[in-house]
Amino acid sequence: MSEGQAAAIRLVGLRKEFHGTPPVVAVDDVDLVVGGGEFFSMLGPSGSGKTTVLRMIAGFEAPTAGRVELAGADVTALPPHRRDVNTVFQDYALFPHLSVRDNVEYGLRVKGVDKAQARTRAMAELERVRLADLAERRPAQLSGGQRQRVALARALVNRPQVLLLDEPLGALDLKLREQMQVELKAIQREVGITFLFVTHDQEEALTLSDRIAVFNAGRIEQVGTAREVYESPATGFVAGFVGTSNMLTAAAAQAVVGTDGAFAIRPEKIHLTLPGVSAEPGSVRTRGTIAEVVYAGPVTRYVVDLAAGGRLTALEQNGHRTAADGLVRGAEVDLYWAAQHLISIPTT
């Protein structure tokens, strides 16, 4: 984000409590700045507050405390229809009684854009998502992926300052989801609108985002680029939630690393050899027994029980592994990794 330019979204001390005894704190004093034109993801498990934050930005929920600013203006008290944001809903929320084109025109028509112009713009937007030939259909006659694209066109046609996407790919199957990820990224580059994307899928967040905020229990644990969040997780939660959880704690940390504390290591940084084979100098080395071998096409996952206690997962490319190299279940192996790949996790 460049200096001087007003942030697209600024959240200040944003808090949401839902009624109950005691009240349920869904969002716990969140501060966040999203820059103009960013593809920003809010990543977290369900119930971590990310969707509630999105709904407060859209105006569907009123914050218990705190402020929502859009392009420098405080919109906390404005109703949804007065905010320059549009939402792609998880269930798409297409109007069933309107054709695809009328759905896309809807936002323009209620804002008083004349019919001819609204139609032209709607068709151009449908062109962008390659659905122009289905413009006369009803949403019920479309596939899930097509509905998803209609929802996207219906939001984008209004050219909002910010597009809010609430798990928009959650209902699609894997192939379609990967295809839509590529498409979303391309569309975002093309229109240059700030995308705020909610997902619980860490891979999706890593693939798509310029920056990611990792949510847990109503708070933000870390904000950073995909690389920062993955390579240098700020907390144990981030290390575990983003990527495979590979932690060395307590006695295992003492034995392997030599100091107390908690450490995370990414599976693909760990190499396996049979005992006795010498490893590169300067690496951390420890012994274990293979508990599980999971062959997954391009890679194989080895789950290893450490002699020092604890369990690590190692990921090996199958490009330089063969079935006959002795790494089978029950085999004793050495694990080693470069010392700099060991991530120290602050324990609180």
Binding site: A58, G59, F60, P79, P80, H81, V85, N86, T87, F89, Q90, D91, A93, L94, F95, Y106, G107, V110, K111, R154, A155, N158
Partner: peptide, 22 residues
């Protein structure tokens, strides 16, 4: 569905527009 009402408001529809059109 609640989301249909929210979608209408989100797209700029006033309460009256939402009532009449959705």
């Amino acid at each position: 569905p609640e989301s249909h009402l929210e979608a209408s408001a989100d797209l700029g529809g006033s309460d009256w527009a939402t009532f009449r059109r959705v």
